[in-house]
Design a protein around this nucleic acid. Structure first.
Lengths: 151, 151
DNA sequence: GACAGGTTGTTGTATATACAAATACATGGG
DNA sequence: CCCATGTATTTGTATATACAACAACCTGTC
């Protein structure tokens, strides 16, 4: 039926575009979590960074970016805001270029306070997306292989 | 195993967070399309709006926003840029508050020139996400029901 | 040990995004 | 007709995001 790879039409794009759907669901899902976290003035984007740093202990920007498929400049600005809030702190390393950082006590506290709200949003998201999509996302991420497609 | 709804830990968030996955893949997938469209100085975000307008003929901002689950203020800025590029034009309506617009000839031309690049990106995205993704995502979107969850 | 080339981050610029507040218009009740 | 209330959009502000250009630093080679 729909054009596979031969001259798709505008209608085909409208009907099939994966980016459009992905982006739309991203907006909806992000809003779900951001709403739940709003009382903490925390957004899910920042929470995800806090989680990554928590897991890594001390992390260099480049490492986080590779894990999250985030541009380094994006992370730079995000970290800037989170340092300003007192959630992250830089720790000197041997390589003077690197700016490795870790959670502060404040950062960990915020992260822990965020979990109940996260859980509520996660439930709603699971219900909305269904098991299939959740698995799909996990599978695709596995297939990315650190820095594959995007790099 | 992993905590269902009782006191999830930071590790649980790291392992399971749907928003994190969705946002990560959104970045990767968006980059796929944006790369393919770069020669046209077009981004997939704008292309999706052009497609929606093309399908609707003449569209009011609020309608598009409902379809795409986009905030009206977001659309307002996007449309502003696309009007400046000569891709969209406003058409007066009976309600003086409304700003219904449609594609210009230029807009349609750009959209059509974008399709081959789109098709290549779509192929890569399909490969990355697996067959049937579009349908899975579509299912979730169907479940949204115009303005449901987000509204 | 100096220089070339690579790596790590930050900064400039532009778009995408949303919330809140302001604006402009419409509409129904007196 | 006028006002109160509601609806459609824009504007102010802040974050998220990426690309390009730059700055700072490391490393291997001669």
């Amino acid at each position: 039926m729909s054009a596979k790879k031969m001259n798709p039409s505008i209608d085909d794009v409208a009907r099939e575009c994966i980016a459009a759907r992905m982006r739309m669901l991203n907006r909806v899902v992000t809003a779900l979590y951001d709403d739940a976290l709003r009382p903490l003035s925390l957004k899910v984007s920042q929470m995800n960074i806090l989680v990554a740093v928590a897991k890594m202990g001390t992390a260099r920007p480049a490492e986080i970016c590779q894990r999250l498929h985030l541009d380094v400049s994006t992370l730079s600005r995000n970290v800037e805001r989170m340092k300003a809030r007192g959630w992250l702190e830089v720790v000197a390393g041997d390589d003077a270029r690197a700016q490795p950082f870790r959670l502060t006590a404040e950062g960990r506290k915020v992260l822990e306070k965020a979990i109940p709200g996260w859980a509520k949003a996660q439930e709603k998201a699971t219900e909305l997306l269904g098991r299939g999509v959740a698995e799909l996302l996990g599978g695709a991420i596995g297939r990315l292989g650190q820095g594959g497609v995007t790099k």
